[in-house]
Design a protein around this nucleic acid. Structure first.
Length: 873
RNA sequence: GCCGACGUGGUGGAAUUGGUAGACACACUAGCUUGAGGGGCUAGCGCCGCGAGGCGUGUCGGUUCGAAUCCGACCGUCGGCACCA
């Protein structure tokens, strides 16, 4: 064994061993319990970032831990390889997205390997490979057959200069990011997946996921947004019938049909047919609709924008009183939600209240507060106005509580054919069409005679040409005759291929299934998924808590219904790791633009008056005063990233892994700290020299438990207590930081243990072995070396997790804390099994305690066995 | 705006079921090591107080013998909001 720790040499040797022995290649072993450990696959952006390191280290620790528990562990890796960044890179440097992506994959795979993750690389896949996206297309066609996939129009951001569709992130303050042009909403035909058909099941099955964080399940439940309410039709008044040119009714959905008699106006979305009909004769309305059309499609913008509206001059009739109600166009009503129209009840809905106040609309109170919180409705709004109560001034429905009113009104509406009870979901169908090049082609052909024709299975996959370079002006696929020109599979005539590609969420909705059988050329998945699925542990960022996870759950259920997989839920346990943060430093240059400085380049200095200032080398090499902007997610835009590669080069992979696991528990944010990294490195060096010092004295005799000294017994107790804690921390709690802290305490205890007899040597050997075994999943390379140094032939990766010796935990006496009136006043030592009377007497006799109790009657004594005594006086 | 989380020393964090607040580390201070480079070791380290002791987990209130933990209100920070992945 070398005297000093050389991470580079140690890591090279360990990685070489795992490679040569194909340590992490696994196959199905029907008799053996499996553990499928999956981390969210990365987008191949070019280089690994610390978020990846954190994510994959968590996965690797669990995978290696479960392997030591004897499980058949699958830990695969792949690439979420389609997406917008490849197109952006192509636009700025002219390299085709395919080449850029594949180069990035090569580089990042090397980086992943350098970190020593125990991955079965024989299963690697990339979603841009035709052998993968073939099955996106195949399943899309099955969905089309079952009516799960369908076509309708959808709203997109349209850049009129580039003649192209933009992603939300490409729209900055209403303008295109490249052109600066005002973005319009435009309706275009798109393909949708009918996820709402599964809404009830997606919601209900959340209860079958005890291994998911509550907050994620809650977010999903809110996203699905099941609400029970009532559909109500307001028949068109004659003016509306005339404007539209037909009979009909304005349909709304409401959860508060008990307030139906408080309706004083109706509000419809700008795109609603009634709005469009009214606009024909009203220029100011048509201008307003145009303004709404230019507005953002994002919910956050819609919810925060000023609530504006304009009357249409048209009316609908109240379903019971027949009174005319004016229809308004409002920018807070969205065509995509519900019916694109709402009934306005300003007395009992805050948003309607605000709208009515602004436009001078009447407010009619129709619910009385059961607690008497209000007598009439007046500004400002108080939340009691929106609470359930007893109906008033509601004709035959007056005097009813909420539920009775809803039931009675719904029944009456149904009798008149003007409404019914209905469940409404907030969840909308999943639009998967993207007007982009670097994605999976949608396998359809448009024929003048036959219309929309699916590509026959035998012609799949529809291959994406890989030599195109997007220039920002629309989808290059549309300009590629070689791609678009085809023959109609039905009539054989000339036809045009669909140029839209699929949302990349499609790619990531089933990759975890394909890992079970990546070499299967004849089908999407095969029986091997029955062995490996569901994923036992899924690990990824909290930012995917809703969309990716919901889409994957949906996709799995569709595949189950098609008989392709057996499981209904793909991920049994979910761990959502927090973001990696670092400090942000910036300065505003002479040109008025803000520049960001990497924290590694910033130096802190104290002015003579004690204020702290920060400086960094500027572009010209001269020192620039920079301001501190707090902590933020590591990002390119704020230049506060830490490059994992440099970290590994400087300290080794084990230090990088140890720091990311030690700095905070996995679900919380992780704050970067160079000093913390050095601390991690120092600990590994101390561990190394502790083992070095120990083995220098030769191999110890076998451990004899009889006749150990008190200090030896104390060390063994500490070791087995620490082992029990670390096992629970990793295996159940998934708190790696406290497991590492336990190991640090043990190493400190070993350092304090000074005995030098053969028996002491044996006890120390046991202690060091347990520390090394416990740390092996976290810092596998150094433990690989230390395990051999401790005299073992077998590689530590193939060892079993150590077992707690419960006999070592037994104590003769225990320390109890003594409180007087809940305040800590002393400590006592009592025999482990002492009865309450003994404990009580010992507590009252203890010096500082007796002083606080003296002269006062003892009212109560609470004894918590093994913990504390509280004397109440 | 809506939904979700978080808030504890100078710093990251620990306290797992309501029972010793601050484990473990970082930083800092002092000392040792004649190995002064990002080396090693020892000790100290919540705040106030000479001390006895008092105070202390974002703020205010409540429940309890006992609250960082439970309840209510408020303040602040962060994440998601459907075409970033």
């Amino acid at each position: 064994m070398e005297e000093s720790y050389d991470p580079a040499a140690v890591e090279r040797a360990a990685q070489q061993y795992w490679d040569e022995h194909r340590t992490f290649q696994v196959r199905e072993e029907p008799g053996r319990e499996k553990f499928y450990c999956l981390s969210m696959f990365p987008y191949p952006s070019g280089r690994l970032h610390m978020g990846h390191v954190r994510n994959y280290t968590i996965g690797d620790v669990l995978a290696r831990f479960m392997r030591m528990q004897g499980r058949n562990v699958l830990q695969p890796m792949g690439w979420d390889a389609f997406g917008l960044p490849a197109e952006n890179a192509a636009m700025s440097n002219g390299v085709p997205p395919a080449r850029w992506t594949r180069q990035n994959i090569e580089y990042m795979r090397k980086q992943l390997k350098s970190l020593g993750f125990g991955i079965d690389w024989s299963r690697e896949l990339a979603t841009c490979d035709p052998s993968y996206y073939h099955w996106n297309q195949w399943l899309f066609l099955r969905m089309l057959e079952k009516g799960i996939a369908y076509r309708r129009t959808g709203v997109v951001n349209w850049d009129p200069v580039d003649q192209t569709v933009l992603a939300n992130e490409q729209v900055i303050e209403g303008r295109g990011w490249r052109t600066g042009a005002l973005i319009e909403k435009r309706e275009i035909p798109m393909y949708y997946l009918n996820i709402t058909r599964y809404a009830e099941e997606l919601l209900g099955d959340l209860q079958q996921l005890p291994g998911w964080p509550e907050r994620v399940k809650l977010m999903q439940a809110n996203w699905i947004g099941r609400s029970e309410g009532c559909e109500v039709s307001f028949p068109y008044a004659p003016d509306t019938r005339a404007a539209i040119g037909a009979e009909g009714a304005l349909k709304v959905f409401t959860t508060r049909v008990d307030t139906l008699f408080g309706v004083t106006f109706m509000a419809v979305a700008a795109e609603h047919p009634v709005a469009l009909a009214a606009a024909a004769s009203r220029p100011e309305l048509s201008a307003f609709i145009e303004e709404c059309r230019r507005g953002s499609v994002m919910e956050a913008d819609v919810a925060t924008q000023e609530k504006k509206g304009l009357p249409t001059g048209l009316h609908v009739l109240h379903p019971f009183t027949g009174a005319p109600i004016e229809v308004w166009v409002a920018n807070y009503v969205l065509m995509g939600y519900g019916e694109g129209a709402v009934m306005g009840v300003p007395a009992h809905d805050e948003r309607d209240f605000e709208f009515a106040g602004r436009h001078g609309l009447p407010i009619t109170m129709v619910v009385r507060s059961p607690s008497g919180a209000y007598e009439r409705i007046e500004a400002p709004w108080i939340s009691a106005y929106g609470e359930h109560g007893i109906t008033v001034d509601s004709g035959q429905f007056s005097g009813l509580d909420f539920q009775s009113a809803v039931d009675a009104i719904a029944t009456a509406l149904e009798q008149r054919g003007l409404g019914r009870k209905r469940v409404q979901f907030r969840l909308r169908d999943w639009g998967i069409s993207r007007q982009r090049y670097w994605g999976c082609p949608i396998p359809l052909i448009h024929c003048e005679h036959c219309g929309e024709v699916p590509v026959p299975d035998a012609q799949l996959p529809v291959r994406l040409p890989e030599d195109l370079v997007p220039d920002g002006s629309g989808n290059p696929l549309g300009k590629s005759a070689a791609f678009t020109h085809c023959t109609c599979p039905r009539c054989g005539g000339p036809a045009r291929r669909e140029t839209d590609t699929m949302d990349t969420f499609v790619d990531s909705s089933w990759y975890y299934l394909r890992y079970a059988c990546p070499d299967q050329a004849a089908s999407m998945v095969d029986a091997r998924t029955d062995y490996w699925l569901p994923v036992d542990q899924y690990i990824g960022g909290i930012e995917h808590a809703i969309l990716h996870l919901l889409y994957s759950r949906f996709w799995t259920k569709v595949m189950r219904d098609l008989g392709l997989v057996r499981c209904a839920e793909p991920f049994t346990n979910l761990l959502t790791q927090g973001m990696v943060l670092n400090h942000i430093y910036s300065s505003v240059g002479a040109d008025g633009r803000r520049r960001y400085y990497n924290p590694a380049d910033v130096r802190a200095r104290r002015e003579s008056d004690g204020t702290e200032i920060f400086e960094a080398p500027g572009a010209d090499g001269k020192s620039v005063r920079v301001e501190y902007g707090g902590l933020g997610k590591m990002s390119k835009s704020e230049n506060n990233g830490v490059d994992p590669e440099g970290l590994v080069a400087r300290y080794g992979a084990d230090t990088a892994r140890l720091f990311t696991m030690f700095a905070s528990p996995p679900e919380q944010t992780l704050e970067w700290s160079d000093e913390g990294v050095q601390g991690a490195s120092r600990f590994l060096r101390r561990l190394w020299s502790a083992v070095y010092e120990h083995v220098r004295h030769g191999s110890p005799p076998p451990l004899e438990l009889a006749g150990l000294s008190a200090a030896q017994r104390a060390l063994r107790r500490a070791v087995h207590q620490g082992l029990a804690k670390a096992t629970d921390d990793i295996g159940r709690r998934r708190n790696f930081n406290t497991a590492i802290a336990a190991c640090m305490e043990l190493l400190n205890a070993v350092g304090r243990f000074q005995e030098d007899t053969p028996a002491a040597h044996a006890v120390r050997q046991e202690a060091l072995e347990i520390i090394v075994l416990v740390l092996a999943p976290i810092v596998p390379h150094v433990c690989h070396a230390l395990w051999h140094a401790l005299g073992h032939e077998q590689a530590i990766v193939d060892e079993r997790w150590p077992v707690v010796d419960t006999a070592a935990l037994v104590q003769d006496t225990v320390e109890l804390v003594v409180q007087v009136n809940g305040k800590l006043r002393g400590r006592i030592q009592v025999a482990a099994g002492a009865d309450e009377a003994t404990v009580r007497e010992a507590a009252l006799g203890e010096e500082p305690v007796s002083r606080f109790v003296a002269g006062k009657p003892v009212r109560k004594v609470i004894v918590v066995p093994g913990k504390l005594v509280n004397i109440v006086v």
